[in-house]
């Protein structure tokens, strides 16, 4: 990659780390609990909530993947009906997890799905022979970016709810996340201190770009939970034939993000 190829202006992912920030949108209905009584209060969404939601979505996707839900959905919608096999598989998982009846009952009540998230996902992974089950940073960053972009284009509705269209996460959010995560300056001693000490900015930027491309390649080798089929093919082609397109796409996403983050009050 030449120095000319490395000149991209992409917003680092530092804004992902902001928590205590009310987003300048219409108020959203949020459940709350006071003196044992559940109520609903209308208030503004915070970055912390958006970030936690992104993490929960990633977790859910991984749990579903480990339980075989994406494959089931695909086959069901092609009318090849593997539902009986799937239910047998779920029963097998439950039996093998040895949760005990009460534990399964709790899981079914939903509340404990939250409570047992960590051990549940690892156990599922072990059963499926998956050595690295955790949702990766790239996914969380991409989903968080997607949620925020959606919030910018579809404000909260009059009823105080946020309705997201679903489907799959756009490619530009994934590649933006791959770049933005390596543009965050890590704490502690720098791993690649040689380039920075030499003042060679070109080399330093080549480092994050190399890391971003590697992250994209690695992500493609994982179960592609966020990307649709078309985006998966596009990203593979970019990496193969025109890596600079990855950064150009990320930059376009970044350009859209900058004014939005200011409008929502996340950045000044």
């Amino acid at each position: 990659m030449t120095a000319a190829d490395t000149n991209y202006d992409i917003l680092p992912g530092d804004w992902w780390l902001i928590r205590q920030c009310n987003l300048n949108t219409q108020s959203v209905l949020r459940p709350r609990r006071r003196r044992g009584v559940a109520t609903v209060k209308s208030r503004q969404l915070t970055m912390a909530e958006l970030s936690e939601t992104a993490a929960k979505l990633c977790f859910r996707l991984h749990s579903m993947y480990l339980q075989g839900v994406p494959g089931l959905l695909k086959e069901l919608q092609q009318d090849s009906l593997p539902a009986a096999q799937y239910m047998a598989r779920i029963r097998e998982i439950n039996r093998r997890l040895d949760l005990g009846g009460k534990r399964i009952e709790k899981l079914k009540q939903g509340r404990d799905v939250q409570r047992f998230t960590v051990d549940q996902i690892y156990k599922l992974a072990v059963l499926q022979g998956v050595p690295e089950p955790a949702p990766c940073v790239l996914e969380w960053g991409a989903v968080l970016t997607w949620l925020l972009l959606h919030l910018g284009s579809h404000p909260v509705d009059a009823g105080g709810t946020v309705g997201i269209p679903g489907g799959t996460v756009p490619l530009e959010c994934v590649v933006y996340a791959a770049c933005a995560m390596f543009l965050i300056e890590p704490i502690g001693p720098k791993k690649d201190s040689g380039a920075a000490q030499d003042g060679d900015a070109g080399l330093a930027s080549a480092t994050w770009q190399r890391q971003a491309l590697e992250a994209c390649e690695q992500y493609l080798s994982r179960p592609r939970l966020l990307l649709g089929q078309a985006d998966f093919v596009s990203l593979s082609a970019f990496l193969e034939d025109d890596p600079a397109e990855v950064f150009r796409t990320a930059q376009r996403c970044s350009e859209r993000l900058r004014p939005l983050l200011i409008r929502l009050g996340v950045r000044r």
Binding site: M64, L73, H154, G163, T168, V169
Partner: peptide, 26 residues
């Protein structure tokens, strides 16, 4: 508008189920 490529008239995805489970799906 900022929508994902496969949101309309397309098969249900795992992301749809995850958003549905979170009460966030439109």
């Amino acid at each position: 508008s900022y929508e994902s490529a496969e949101s309309k008239g397309s098969p249900v995805t795992a992301m749809d189920l995850a958003l549905y489970a979170e009460g966030l799906l439109d």
